[in-house]
């Protein structure tokens, strides 16, 4: 691993209180380092990994970062996560692309989660692009989730910088008492495009989901947020899409909530607009310039 690799890894990793229990580092399409533990096994399969977390595993911390430094690579990886009953794990995934050349470089992580009864998963995904070349940096993650009775999952996904094009698809089916929370943060600038698609099926009594998307579109960038929440029984779904646009940025929010039972309670809220004048005025009256105020407002909005 060289300095660039280390810096890329740094950008997409996340400090945790507990030490890392198992990891797999993928660089330019191949595994360069792996560690497993008694409770967490990472096995290679064709074009991907099978990750097994044993029942009742506590404080399992799994890192599976992907970095790409070779311009022109089109990497696709299929990872399956099998989370055992009542296990409690944090999974830090993410992809960093360093592209110094003119070739389009992409990564698609197709992740499937099979979460057993009572298990708790926190999934952190960071996307980041850099490099001096004009070759596009593209990330297209797909996440498919099956959540058994009373399991819980929280997804924090962040894309702050340097990704030219991204399409994120998240699909989940939740059974009795399962809870899925998604916090998504995206900032796009220049001519970047980002699309995020959700389809959540609440198919169990008291299943619930809470999706919060906060995004900022600057310059001529474009974002699309399409969410579909289907409630098949007594359940709760809340989607909140909040976006700030600047310059010629555009954000499109396409909400769909589909209640198939009278006791399904589904809400979609979307608010898109420029930075509120009131917020600027307040910070300026405390001594910030307009530019400084704007910067603080955007940073805090995405924090």
């Amino acid at each position: 691993m060289n300095e660039t690799d280390k810096e890329l890894l740094e950008k997409i990793s996340e400090q945790t209180k507990e030490p890392i229990s198992a990891y797999n580092i993928r660089k330019n399409g191949t595994c360069i380092d792996r560690k497993v533990s008694d409770y967490i096994n990472i096995a290679a399969k064709e074009h991907g990994l099978e990750i097994y977390v044993k029942e009742n595993t506590l404080f399992g911390i799994i890192h599976i970062p992907v970095i790409i430094t070779q311009s022109g690579i089109k990497d696709i990886v299929y990872n399956d996560f099998h989370i055992g009953k009542n296990a409690n794990v944090i999974i830090v995934a993410g992809c960093g692309i360093h592209n110094d050349d003119k070739h389009e470089t992409s990564h698609s992580g197709i992740h499937r989660f099979f979460i057993a009864e009572g298990a708790k998963v926190k999934y952190i995904e960071k996307h980041y692009g850099e490099g001096s070349g004009n070759g596009k940096k593209i990330l297209n993650p797909v996440t498919e989730i099956k959540m058994q009775k009373n399991s819980k999952m929280t997804i924090n996904s962040v894309q702050i910088k340097g990704v030219d094009d991204t399409k994120r698809v998240t699909k989940a089916t939740l059974y009795d008492g399962a809870t899925l929370t998604i916090n998504e943060k995206i900032l796009t600038n220049n001519n970047q495009k980002a699309k995020s698609e959700f389809e959540i099926i609440l198919d169990g009594l008291d299943a619930s989901t809470h999706i919060v998307s906060r995004s900022v579109a600057i310059d001529k960038s474009y974002q699309e947020f399409a969410s579909k929440v289907i409630g098949k029984t007594k359940c709760y779904g809340h989607v909140e899409c909040d976006a700030i646009i600047k310059d010629e940025g555009m954000v499109r929010s396409i909400p769909e909530v589909f209640a198939q039972d009278t006791s399904a309670n589904l809400i979609h809220e979307a608010a898109i607009g420029k930075i509120a004048g009131e917020e600027l005025l307040k910070l300026m009256s405390l001594g910030l310039t307009e530019k400084e105020a704007e910067k603080v407002i955007i940073e805090e909005f995405l924090k």
Binding site: R214, E278, E279, L281, K282, V296, I297, E300, F301
Partner: peptide, 8 residues
């Protein structure tokens, strides 16, 4: 007072 999204 002004409301903010995110500012603590």
């Amino acid at each position: 007072p002004t409301l903010f999204k995110g500012l603590t």
